[in-house]
Design a binder for these strands. Structure first.
Lengths: 211, 211
DNA sequence: GTCTATAGATTGATAGAC
DNA sequence: GTCTATCAATCTATAGAC
């Protein structure tokens, strides 16, 4: 088996297990068994379990953030061309839509989205920072862009509401399979595709509420 | 040491550690050491680590849900008296405010709120259900009440938006200490008290957005 | 690069004295 | 009810043969 095969199989398996079972609840034995690689190969290729998590997140998040940033910049430059402020909805759409599209691109991507949605609330700071370090730049870009779109909002309240938006998103991203009301008598069916437009409508309304 | 003392010390310690370190990342040895009780007493009093988690959640969540339900019923009956539908904002306030007030009632309560905020995105279904089983009844009460307040919203979209609201809340509840932008140059200070009103304003606007 | 074997530490749970 | 002592299983990580 070639090196890249082994590395990829480890990354794929880790992505799945970290998302579905949690990082601390996933043992290297379970992982290497699922990935059909040798137990020792994880430490050989990645050095440690934590560095593996870092690699899992980097592999997908860097390309995703590149797409999100491109789309945001496109909205900004289009607005500049007609000398008007950008639309908040267009900016949030540029941020949210690629996430959900990416989620549907493969089963692994689905697990990945669930994993990073969960990383935000991770109590273990080391784990949380694995994700946050890579997410901060794009969030700052989004913050600046939204400030242009809604200059009437104070930076403090804009920041607060952006946090709410991230919270809403990360929750949706985690709910791969389990709706909150899954076991209740209420209408279940937590369909992510059908969720994108309602999600955008919800966060835009919350963001644009009068201060 | 009396039995109830030991039980309480275990519950307090577990609440703190499960919230701050995570359930799987908390060992019984760390817990019993922090609580200054014997290692064996956890299994003696609670049977297992998982049953302990269940007890930790029940101790606080049952009283909190009783308060939330009372406040919701009060809004409903006041509306009934004047023969008008209840206000969505009053209902969400009845749900959210007790949570945040409770959070400030003691350091343990603060950890607890962080713990249940996190439970929703817990990948381990057993753990997630420890919380969900106790949370479902009040969520159904809230759903029914919001349906009276906003009859123009279809049950499906109301349900979806209620999930968004829970997501926003649970994210706020988790952020005891760490703001998303904590390590950035942007204004930090994630003050929960100052967050209640912006949170209510945000979720009400999102909930009442035109369909 | 991949493997076996294992070190060395830690885990949840329990048996049995007091 | 509380303690010590310990079991049996698990864990991450590594050494060394191939």
């Amino acid at each position: 088996m070639s090196q890249s095969d082994t590395k990829t199989r480890i990354l794929d398996g880790a992505e799945q297990l970290f998302a579905r079972e949690g990082f601390h609840n996933t043992s290297l034995r379970t992982l290497t068994s699922l990935a059909s690689v040798n137990l020792a190969s994880v430490n050989y290729h990645f050095g440690s379990k934590e560095s593996l998590l870092q690699a899992v997140i980097e592999r997908r998040l860097l390309p995703l953030n590149r797409i999100r940033e491109e789309k945001i910049e496109k909205v900004l430059s289009a607005a500049k061309k007609i000398a008007s402020p950008p639309e908040a909805e267009a900016l949030l759409r540029a941020f949210i839509e690629p996430t959900m599209e990416f989620r549907n691109s493969s089963p692994g991507a689905r697990d990945f989205i669930s994993l990073i949605g969960r990383s935000l609330t991770e109590p273990d700071e080391t784990i949380r920072n694995c994700f946050m370090d890579l997410a901060l730049p794009i969030l700052q870009v989004l913050f600046e862009a939204l400030h242009q779109a809604l200059p009437q909002l104070s930076p403090a309240i804009l920041m607060t509401r952006l946090q709410f938006i991230i919270g809403t998103m990360s929750h949706v991203m985690c709910m791969s399979s389990h709706s909150i009301f899954h076991s209740s008598e209420l209408p279940p069916a937590f369909d992510h595709d059908a969720l994108v437009e309602p999600l955008i409508k919800y966060v835009v309304a919350g963001l644009e509420a009068p201060e």
